[in-house]
Structures are given as C-alpha cells and as structure tokens.
C-alpha cells in the first residue's frame, strides 16, 4: 500500500505579512515558510494508517527554502521516503502544483497507482484557488473527498469520515486509488524530538527529482493585494444598558448572526 502525502509550504501568519511593491503579491523578504497545517495532519493520518495497515509512507514537496528540514522531520515522524521535486517554483497556484505532483506520481507509480491513497491538506491559506486535492484527483483520474477527519481500510475500500458543520459527520466509501483532503488526523500530529530529526539527517537521504513548469492556460491575475483595515481597539459603545444591548443586537443582525 502506498500512502502518499503532499506537503505544501505556506507563509507563517505569525509573521507580519507585507505586500510587495507591485501591490499584487507578498513581500517575500520577511516571509517565514512553514508546512500548511492541514498537510501536517495528512502526514499524521498517513503514518497512523501505515501503523495500522502496513505499507510505506512517502512525503513529497516542491523545492523551497528550508524544505529539507520539513522532509527530514517527516522522516523522523515515520515517513519511509521523502521526495523533493526541484525546479523554479514561485507563486504557483493549486492548478499548477496539482499538475506537477500528478505528473510525478504517475511517472513514479505507473501501474502501482491502484494501491495508492494520496493524502494532503483540505485547504491552504496562501492560494486564491485554495484547494489542490480536487485538481490532483482530476489529473490522476481518481475519486476525491475533502474535509476528511478519519480514514480506515475495509476490504480494499477506503472508508472516510467527512466533517460537516456543528459536529455532524458523514461516512463515505470510495475505492482505491483516491485522493483525500484531510482536515484533521484522528490524533494531533505527534511530536518529533529534535534529536531524532538530527539523527535522520545524518542517516537518510532525500530523493530529489527534476520537473518543469507545466503549461497552464493564462488564468486570472490578482489585481490588488492589501491588508484589511486594522480594527485596532474596540469601538466602545456607550449609553444605558438597554441602548448598548440594542446596539449589540443590531451589530449581530447586520452580520446575520441573529
């Protein structure tokens, strides 16, 4: 069984994000890149599945600064193989990344694709398209379900839990190969001690493969990128308790919260 995990680097929103001079993209000078959080859950879910059902976990990323550390961490966490697809990748949208990943996966697995479950984060915060998994499923010609928070194998079928709102979930069945957009793993991603990552760095190598930019029809472009107006300190409501209550209810009504 192949558990394939796609990890994507996104800007860390802990850092102050600045808009570049062109007014249409982020200023990359101050960016700190981290793994998209749902992707971390996808990796954890894959490792949990491997622990339960056997098989191998392969973590794949696109080349990016400090991405090696991410791959070593994935290995220390329990992945069996780490693949870095090298190339000049900047400002790619999900459509493009899905093509790069699907090309690699098809080349690599060929006929073995039938025994493959691809897991990646349900969404990513850095992309206007925001979802890579359905595009990937499209290119691989496999079924797809997103917002998954539980996976198990049953007689060659994949049984998944999809989250709806307010705690309601649905159980779905799909056959392999498939692509899943993971919302959260059954358990929070496990801790990887630094010493383990460091020893993996010395003992395991990352597979680096080449790829080139896919041809994508010119799509839309961002016209303007900007920061939302900072709310700053609260707008203080004054008056009698009744007046304040009235104003609060109005605010809620404006936002459709009541």
């Amino acid at each position: 069984m192949n558990w394939v995990v796609i990890l994507k680097m996104v800007p860390d929103t802990v850092e102050e994000l600045m808009v570049a001079e062109d007014g249409r993209s982020l200023d990359t000078q101050w960016l700190r890149m981290i793994v998209s959080e749902p992707d971390e859950h996808a990796l954890e879910e894959a490792i949990l599945l491997k622990e339960r059902c056997g098989g191998t976990v392969t973590a794949i990323t696109l080349e990016a600064p400090e991405v090696d550390e991410i791959l070593y961490t994935a290995l220390a966490r329990g992945a069996d193989r780490a693949v870095k697809i090298s190339g000049e990748w900047t400002g790619l949208r999900s459509t493009a990344t899905a093509q790069i990943f699907s090309t690699y996966i098809k080349d690599w697995l060929g006929q073995n694709l039938s025994e493959t479950l691809v897991l990646t984060g349900s969404q990513a915060i850095d992309d206007l398209e925001g979802e890579m998994a359905p595009y990937l499923a499209h290119h691989l010609g496999t079924p797809y379900v997103g917002v998954v928070s539980g996976v198990r194998l049953e007689e060659g079928k994949v049984i998944i839990m999809k989250e709806f709102a307010g705690g309601l979930r649905g159980e779905f069945e799909l056959s392999l190969p498939a692509v899943l957009g993971i919302q959260s793993a059954e358990k929070p991603p496990r801790y990887v001690p630094v010493a383990k990552v460091r020893s993996i760095m010395k003992s395991v190598k990352i597979d680096t493969v080449e790829s080139s930019l896919p041809e994508i029809p010119a799509s839309l472009s961002v016209e303007k990128m900007y920061k939302p107006e900072i709310a700053g300190r609260a707008e203080m409501l004054a008056g009698t308790p009744e007046e304040i209550a009235k104003r609060i209810v109005e605010i809620l009504a404006e936002r459709g919260l009541i």
């Binding site: 001690p193 630094v194 010493a195 383990k196 460091r198």
Partner: peptide, 8 residues
C-alpha cells in the same frame, strides 16, 4: 526533557 531542542 527535550534535550535535542535544548542543544539546538
């Protein structure tokens, strides 16, 4: 008990 992180 995170000795590796301490060393880092």
């Amino acid at each position: 008990g995170e000795e590796g992180l301490f060393e880092m």
